[in-house]
């Protein structure tokens, strides 16, 4: 084997390793730092320690602030309600847009696309007034509703794409077999696009779990209604020195469910990006 033959196949791997390396180093540092008293570069100084994780037992901000578990519950509530609402509404709306012919269908479609592309930052002040009027400012419910609203256009488009890939014949067959339209949707179409639904559910959950901008804007600081991202941000005050050890520990804590999700659902998430109903036939 010549040198050239040996090096040839290694080149793509080398390139991949080089590109991925910074990310791996980042995660490595995150884990290391959370278990160290202090780090210099990538080396722990003063041995390993668990004190960074003390936030699990007592709130680091003192009395009156919620415990990490309360915040985790808030985050979970936002994420799970977002998952349920987005999946339910998207799969109904996506089906209607894919299959039914109704007045305004075209404009509705382009509107969802525009809304999807719309920078949500520009709407923040308007939404603030709406939440204020509805007495939903600084509530988990309010945050959840706004997040659902922002996620829906994407979800609807995604589900429409999955429905488009289901053959008309199958639906017709079920209608002729004697099913009603709703029953066809529930018993025939939904089961065949399960991968799509699962992918959207995971997607919605993760974006709810990780959300920062909207919880930050519509709740007050690290109060009883805070979510993890807002809580995390609270460590970076302007007046006190930042405790990076604790920040990394909380960050890692927040990362755990997401990481577990990714481990088990990589394939499904890939099918979103591939844009096809892989589980179709």
């Amino acid at each position: 084997m010549t040198l050239r033959q040996r090096i040839g196949p290694a080149i793509p791997y080398a390139l991949l390793v080089i590109t991925v390396l910074p990310i791996v180093v980042g995660y490595f540092w995150l884990v290391l730092n959370s278990f160290s008293a202090r780090t210099e570069g990538l080396l722990p100084v003063g041995g390993l320690a668990l004190e960074n994780w003390s936030f699990l037992r007592e709130t680091p901000f003192g009395r009156g602030y919620p415990s990490i578990w309360r915040v985790t519950l808030n985050t979970f509530l936002v994420a799970i309600s977002m998952t349920i609402a987005v999946v339910l509404v998207s799969s109904l709306a996506g089906y209607a847009l894919s299959r039914l012919n109704f007045p305004g269908r075209k404009s509705f479609l382009s509107l969802t696309l525009i809304l999807h592309a719309f920078p949500s930052v520009t709407l923040l002040i308007g939404i603030y007034f709406v939440l204020r009027t509805l007495k939903l400012y600084n509530t988990v419910l309010g945050v959840g509703l706004v997040m659902i609203g922002f996620e829906l256009p994407f979800g609807i488009w995604l589900m429409k794409g999955f429905f488009d890939n289901v053959s008309w014949d199958m639906e017709r067959a079920a209608l002729i077999d004697g099913a009603s339209r709703l029953r066809v949707w529930w018993e025939i179409i939904i089961p065949t696009i399960k991968p799509g639904i699962a992918a959207l559910a995971i997607f919605a959950f993760i974006s709810g779990w990780n959300a920062w901008l909207i919880p930050k804007t519509f709740t007050i600081g690290a109060g009883q209604q805070a979510t993890l991202s807002v809580y995390l941000e609270n460590f970076q005050g302007d007046t006190v020195a930042v405790q990076w050890g604790t920040v990394t520990a909380v960050g890692l804590f927040q990362l755990i469910p997401v990481a577990i999700f990714f481990l088990f659902t990589q394939d499904l998430l890939l099918s979103i990006y591939a844009g096809g109903a892989k589980g179709g036939a």
Partner: peptide, 16 residues
């Protein structure tokens, strides 16, 4: 369709 008592076979089979 459900009230017509007809059966249909499709080119794509259209099995569930």
């Amino acid at each position: 369709p459900k009230d017509r008592n007809v059966g249909m076979v499709f080119q794509s089979y259209a099995l569930y």
